[in-house]
Design a protein around this nucleic acid. Structure first.
Lengths: 137, 137
DNA sequence: GCATCACATTCGCTTGGACGAATATGTAAA
DNA sequence: TTTACATATTCGTCCAAGCGAATGTGATGC
C-alpha cells in the first residue's frame, strides 16, 4: 500500500504541513522510521488523532508506511521531483532548528536509549535513529 | 508600517502558504515588487479578496508593503534566520517550477512589456521584473 | 475458534477560515 | 472641500477541517 508517488502538488504539500501536529510528526521522522506507538507516546496525543494525521501525510505523499507484524512504521518519502525534494529538505531543516521540535526529538532519543520503556511501549520495535546530529544518551 | 520581523514560526509559515491564492501571490512577487492592481488583474480575482490574502502574507512576515501615492507595492521579505530564508527560497523555487504558476508570471511579464495596459491598470506603476529567468516579451 | 493488541476509520460536533458584499481609509486632483 | 481612485477592513454566511468517542480491521497468540 502507498507505493505510487502522484505528481507533486505544492498546494497539497503546504496544506499537509499547515498543522502543528503534522509538523511534529514529520520532525520525529527526520531521524528515521518510527512506529505509531512512539508517536503517540512522545506527542502525548490520542492514538486516533495521531493515526488520522499520519494518514493525511501519507495521502499527501510526504511519508510512506510499512507494516511489521502488529506495528506500522512511518518514514519520510523523497518526492520524485528535485525541487520538491529540496523543499522537503529545507522544511525538515527548519523544523530541526525549532526549540520545541528539538525537545520532541530529544524525548525520542532518550526513549530509544532507555533500558526500560514505559508500559505503553512494551514489546514495541524501537526506532533506529540515524540523525546526523546525534543527541547523546 | 510592517517593519519589525517577529521571530519566525514554521507553523505560521505553512498556514500562510496553505492556500492557492496566496501561493499565486507569492509566485508573482518572486520577480520583484508589484502593486495590488496587477495582482487582481492577473489572478482575475476581486480586489477585497486579493487585499485580504496580501494582508495575511504580511502578518505572517513573508511579504512587506510600501506605499507610493495611491498605490501599495508588495514584495517578498527575507526572514532573519538563515534556515527560514532557505525554506522560502526552496518554496519560491518549487513555485516557479509549476506550470500554472509559470503561466501567471508569463501573464505578468506580457503586461509589463505591453505598450497599452488594460483600462483597469491605467496610470498604475508598472512592476520592474528582475527575474533571473526572463521571459522574452 | 476466540481474545488481545496495534492501528485505522467512521460519526457527530464544533470551530476556523475563505468568501462576496458592503463599507471604511488614505491619497491626489479638481 | 469635494470628488475620484486605490486599497483595506468589516460583516455575515458557508464550508472544510480538526476533534473526541466509538467502532472497525488486521495480525498474533492461545
Amino acid at each position: 500500500m502507498s507505493k505510487a508517488t502522484p505528481t507533486f502538488s505544492i498546494e497539497l504539500f503546504f496544506r499537509a504541513l499547515a498543522d502543528r501536529t503534522r509538523l511534529r510528526l514529520l520532525n520525529l521522522m527526520s531521524d528515521g522510521e518510527i512506529c505509531v506507538c512512539f508517536f503517540t507516546e512522545i506527542l502525548d496525543e490520542s492514538q486516533p488523532k495521531v493515526s488520522r494525521h499520519l494518514a493525511y501525510l501519507r495521502r499527501a505523499g510526504i511519508v510512506a508506511s510499512r507494516r511489521e507484524g502488529k506495528w506500522m512504521h512511518y518514514r519520510m518519502q523523497e518526492p520524485a521531483e528535485e525541487r520538491a525534494r529540496a523543499l522537503l529538505r529545507a522544511t525538515v531543516d527548519s523544523l530541526r532548528n525549532d526549540p520545541a521540535m528539538q525537545r520532541d526529538r530529544q524525548k525520542l532519543s532518550r526513549l530509544c536509549c532507555s533500558p526500560r520503556l514505559p508500559a505503553s511501549l512494551n514489546g514495541a520495535p524501537v526506532p533506529v535513529l540515524n540523525g546526523s546530529v546525534r543527541t547523546t544518551c
